[in-house]
Amino acid sequence: MNLKEQLTTHLSEIVRERDPYMASAGHFFVQEYIRASFSQWGSVEIHTFSFKSKTFKNLILNLPGLPRKKKRDLPPILIAAHYDAVPGSPGADDNATGVAVLLELARMFAKEPIKYPLRLIAFDMEEYGLIGSAEYAAMLQQEKQKLRLMISLEMLGYKDSRPNSQSYPPPLERFYPDCGDFIALIGNLRTIPDLIHLCRNIRQSGTPSEWLTVPNKGKLVPPTRRSDHAPFWDVGYPAMMVTDTSFMRNPHYHKPSDTIATLDLDFLTGVCRGLEQGIRKI
Rank of each mutant, 00 (worst) to 15 (best):
Met150Asp: 08
Pro76Trp: 08
Ser89Thr: 13
Asp160Asn: 15
Leu61Glu: 05
Asp266Val: 15
Gly88Ser: 10
Met1Trp: 02
Ile279Met: 12
Asn216Cys: 05
Gln141Met: 04
Leu147Gln: 01
Leu78Gln: 14
Ala110Cys: 15
Arg226Thr: 00
Ser12Val: 03
Ser227Val: 00
Lys159Tyr: 05
Ser257Glu: 11
His47Leu: 12
Ile77Pro: 13
Asn216Thr: 03
Asp264Lys: 08
Ile60Glu: 07
Arg119Met: 08
Leu78Lys: 11
Arg225Lys: 05
Leu120His: 03
Pro117Tyr: 02
Ala106Ile: 14
Ser161Glu: 13
Thr262Lys: 13
Ile131Asp: 09
Gly270Pro: 12
Lys115Ile: 04
Lys54Ser: 07
Asp234Ala: 11
Gly88Trp: 08
Asp258Val: 02
His197Lys: 12
Ser152Asn: 15
Leu149Pro: 12
Asn62Phe: 03
Glu32Thr: 08
Leu118Thr: 04
Ala96Asn: 07
Asn216Val: 03
Asp264Trp: 06
Lys281Thr: 15
Leu185Asp: 01
Glu45Asp: 15
Ser257Phe: 04
Glu126Gln: 08
Ala25Val: 10
Val214Arg: 04
Phe247Tyr: 12
Thr243Arg: 07
Thr207Arg: 11
Thr191Trp: 03
Ser246Asn: 09
Met240Glu: 00
Val101Arg: 07
Pro238Lys: 05
Val99Cys: 08
Thr243Ser: 14
Asp124Lys: 01
Gly42Pro: 06
Met240Pro: 06
Met248Lys: 07
Leu156Pro: 08
Gly42Thr: 07
Gln277Gly: 11
Trp233Lys: 01
Glu127Cys: 05
Ala184Asp: 00
Gln204Gly: 02
Arg68Tyr: 00
Leu105Val: 12
Ile34His: 04
Thr55Gln: 13
Glu210Phe: 09
Glu154Asn: 09
Met248Thr: 05
Lys54Tyr: 07
Arg35Lys: 14
Leu268Cys: 12
Pro76Thr: 11
Pro163Val: 03
Met108Leu: 15
Asp181Ser: 15
Thr224Lys: 03
Trp211Cys: 10
Pro251Asp: 10
Ala134Pro: 02
